[in-house]
């Protein structure tokens, strides 16, 4: 479903991603872990083309995009982007729109679907993420956990083939982390393909089919959660996990 090969990304002269190769099967949940600055967020953003890789290939669904120094055309961007939905660390709900307006906005404007259908669909999704009682509230009146659950619903409204989560719980108060992880886990159980950048190792162990450990722009180690998180082979992985243990 997703094939990434030999992907490279530089910011000016700094290399952030170096010959990245990996694939994701339909229904698979992939956890991207690694220290800050290891490139995991950039990798995720490349899949949604919020960053444009300098070289390499990304295939999602039946669309293949080869990257070079040539800037992407708008149509190429939109084509690849339609396969993925993005959930940000900082939620980024539209503050001037209510919860229901937030989630129907994109399909209404981009796909020109009918408003009645979208409201029905939106209500069902909000029910699923436990936000049906907050339909007409503005984001500012919601807690971080509630905002993030709405943001997940907003991304799902576009029916993406793959959901991309960029540290979805890092900006949350500790007591709000669980409600968000629960929603993500439910999605995973339903067979939603997803890639998730996370520092929640227990969550990764429980939910992920595959874990990628990144360091300094490279994928150092990949495999089952058991293999990477419990019996890591590489030294960098071991020291990273050790560091997390020490903190806990």
């Amino acid at each position: 479903m997703i094939e990434i090969s030999n992907l490279n990304k530089k910011f000016d002269e700094t290399t952030v991603l170096e010959s990245i190769d990996f694939s994701v099967k339909k229904g698979e949940v992939v956890a991207l872990i690694g220290a800050s600055g290891s490139g995991k967020t950039t990798l995720l953003r490349c899949l949604n083309l919020l960053e444009t890789p300098n070289s390499g290939t990304i295939t999602i669904g039946d669309t293949t995009q080869v990257f070079s120094e040539r800037p992407l055309k708008k149509t190429e961007k939109l084509k690849l982007r339609q396969y993925s939905g993005m959930v940000f660390q900082g939620f980024h709900l539209f503050p001037h729109k209510t919860v229901i307006e937030n989630i129907i906005e994109a399909p209404l404007i981009v796909k020109k679907e009918s408003k009645e259908t979208l409201i029905k669909k939106g209500e069902a999704l909000l029910d699923k993420v436990g936000m049906i009682d907050h339909l007409d509230k503005f984001p500012d009146a919601l807690s971080g956990g509630q905002q993030q659950r709405v943001a997940i619903a907003r991304a799902l409204m576009m029916e993406p083939d793959v959901m991309l989560f960029d540290e979805p719980t890092s900006a949350l108060d500790p007591q709000l982390v669980r409600e968000v992880l629960k929603v993500i886990e439910e999605l995973a159980n339903e067979g939603q393909t997803m890639i998730i950048v996370t520092h929640e190792m227990n969550f990764a162990k429980r939910v992920a089919d595959k874990v990628l450990f990144m360091d300094d722009g490279y994928i150092i180690e990949e495999g089952s959660p058991e293999k990477v998180l419990v019996h890591p082979e590489k030294q960098q992985t071991k020291s990273f996990l050790q560091l997390l243990d020490d903190e806990a």
Binding site: N48, L50, R81, Q82, G85, F88, G90, V110, M158
Partner: peptide, 13 residues
């Protein structure tokens, strides 16, 4: 974040 959210939801400029 507002620009990126809109972009990631496939909106054009």
């Amino acid at each position: 974040g507002q620009w990126e959210a809109a972009e990631s939801l496939q909106m054009n400029y």
